[in-house]
Design a protein around this nucleic acid. Structure first.
Lengths: 237, 237
DNA sequence: TACAAAGGTGCCAAAATCTGGCATCTTTGT
DNA sequence: ACAAAGATGCCAGATTTTGGCACCTTTGTA
């Protein structure tokens, strides 16, 4: 059993038993006291609030409120995710039928780890607050058409993109990045890109980007028929 | 560098370079040829379609179409997730303001792994098809009120729940599970529960559940003030 | 107040896993 | 025919994880 699986088991055990002891946990998940302690430290580091009472009659238990304070997806957000997918599908946004009758099966498979920790966190407490009757998606936002040509070239020819950027604090910087995707968080557009200088993905608000232009061929070569025919269309939705 | 990070680096390198060789990849991500091969095997196992041409003039490259056939979230679904969250918030569904101006920051943090593989997959190709102008979330579905009392007791008192279940093929089974959450995938309700017999989480469509009742105290003990005051409210939204 | 039971920490050796190198095989363009 | 490129199996070394131990702190109770 790897450490992730064991940590999931610990969370389940805590949920199931309410309050337990280190030794009982060890018995339950089949690991030593020392390992359980290490895992609990890791889980706490991950944002799980696990209370521990020392002394005689002490024990370990999950904080019922912890879900609201973890850095993970909040319950409401996960719920929104699921509802989001479903309603998008219902409205014809999604050409796929992956989520049809399978319930959560696809979502389970889709989430990065094979066992869904965040869904498990969701399970801890379902409270989403009052629901409004209708989702309003008007004003999805628009991209400044002046930016389009440079972006289109960058994406289609897989070139680096260079531009000026004014961050949230108003500081002006110059970036050269590998454009990866365009995202809309209505009403704002974002460029998602790999920044080689910072060795990380960064997100740039489109309305803060100025004077973009392509600076370099990234060396992408079309070698196979599949590439000849399959240069992917970039569509700005 | 751990294997996850290295595999991400491999995917990026493949994207950036179009076609490369094992040795070039090894140079790029700083690992041996053998390790690269192992990682590529793992990535393929994970659903990435990585073509390899043997022989002189061969090379490795990502299948541009692969994104549509992986078992992970499709691009459109990830997009729907993001749009879903945002529009839910805009409509007042979410009491939190976590996603306010932070763009994807919260989503990044929230996803199970510290670096978001699915988002990276999303980055590989952004194509969501034509968008409908309006999301329709009417008919969110309702729960059969006859089921409520047993479920309420099961959740509030943390008891096992026993019921008859007719699966998708019409087969009738009897289940005894630990109820974890209620989910709505409009218009359907689901019970999410840990099935001890199967040692896994299972999802049960509410309309396929019959004669539920609580069968056993799970041994949850209220030991601390925090539990006395904090028995979490289960609200059926 | 002493004591026992519970969580917490540091350290080290054993166990498990990961990595790199090597030999060898298969495939394919020239 | 040959060379270049991917694929596989194996093994030893490196790295990480795990378990055991000693010892500490905290706290309810006799």
């Amino acid at each position: 059993m790897n450490s992730r699986t064991r940590q999931d088991a610990i969370i389940r055990s805590l949920r199931r038993n309410g309050t337990t002891t280190l030794d009982a946990l060890g018995q339950d998940v089949g690991a030593s006291r020392r390992t359980i302690l290490r895992d609990i430290a890791a889980l706490r580091d991950d944002g799980f609030v696990i209370h521990a009472d020392r002394g005689r009659g002490g024990g370990l238990y999950l904080d019922p409120q912890s879900i609201q304070t973890t850095p993970r997806l909040s319950v409401a957000e996960v719920f929104a995710l699921i509802l989001g997918i479903t309603s998008m599908r219902a409205a014809g946004y999604l050409p796929f039928s992956a989520l049809a009758d399978a319930g959560l099966a696809k979502i389970e498979k889709a989430l990065p780890s094979d066992k869904i920790r965040d869904l498990r966190l969701l399970l801890d407490c379902l409270y989403v607050g009052p629901l409004a009757p209708q989702v309003d998606t008007s004003n999805l936002g628009e991209m400044d058409p002046e930016l389009l040509p440079a972006f289109e070239t960058a994406f289609l020819q897989r070139r680096f993109l260079s531009f000026g950027y004014r961050d949230a604090k108003g500081a002006e910087t110059h970036r050269t990045v590998e454009p990866q995707a365009m995202l809309i968080l209505p009403p704002l557009w974002y460029l998602v890109a790999w920044d080689p200088a910072r060795q990380d993905f960064r997100h740039f608000r489109m309305d803060r980007i100025s004077t973009p232009n392509c600076v370099e061929d990234t060396g992408f070569r079309r070698r196979r028929v599949i590439f000849e025919a399959g240069v992917r269309p970039i569509r700005y939705v």
